[in-house]
Amino acid sequence: MIEEYRFHGRGGQGAVTAARLLVGAAHREGRYGQAFPHFGAERRGAPVVAFARISDRPIRVHEQVREPDVVVVLDPTLFKLVNVLEGLREGGVLVVNSKEDPGIQGPYKVFIVDATGIALSLGLRVAGWPVVNTSILGAVVKATGSVSLDSVVDEIKSNWPGRMGEANAQAAKLAYEKAVRVR
């Protein structure tokens, strides 16, 4: 059984890094993972996509993810631009960076968290932009339970040693606490 994830963000928000950290967390648990970006001519602010797979066994397949089990949306304004629900499996999980219920219809579990607010409260900014990728991972952990919060926190801290890592790890913990299911 391979769990498949798709991350939607904007160039610079760290969707690719979020996918990589999630997979790194799975590796810490002795599981297998694969993280890869969608290969476009991305630029800052443009819609971007990244993918991840997690499994208890080595992952052979190297095709694109078509029917994800989990979709993660780092920026709710993307709902107007791309069909983030495309291919999402029935009973699949949607995790959205949003203060409000996005009002999604369909056979999905929907979780929201104000990742932007959490990032700003911790002073997490890069080039003026709030860093939402680490906080959203806390919400992903809450929504799926696939990897543990501890593994995600360890992966974040090893990715950014020192104060940066501490703040990002804190963001993931706060998001884990604050994420709520709205559907």
Partner: peptide
């Protein structure tokens, strides 16, 4: 493989 492997993170 460029991208398909060069940018794909694996254990």
């Amino acid at each position: 493989d460029g991208y398909i492997m060069s940018h794909t993170v694996e254990p």
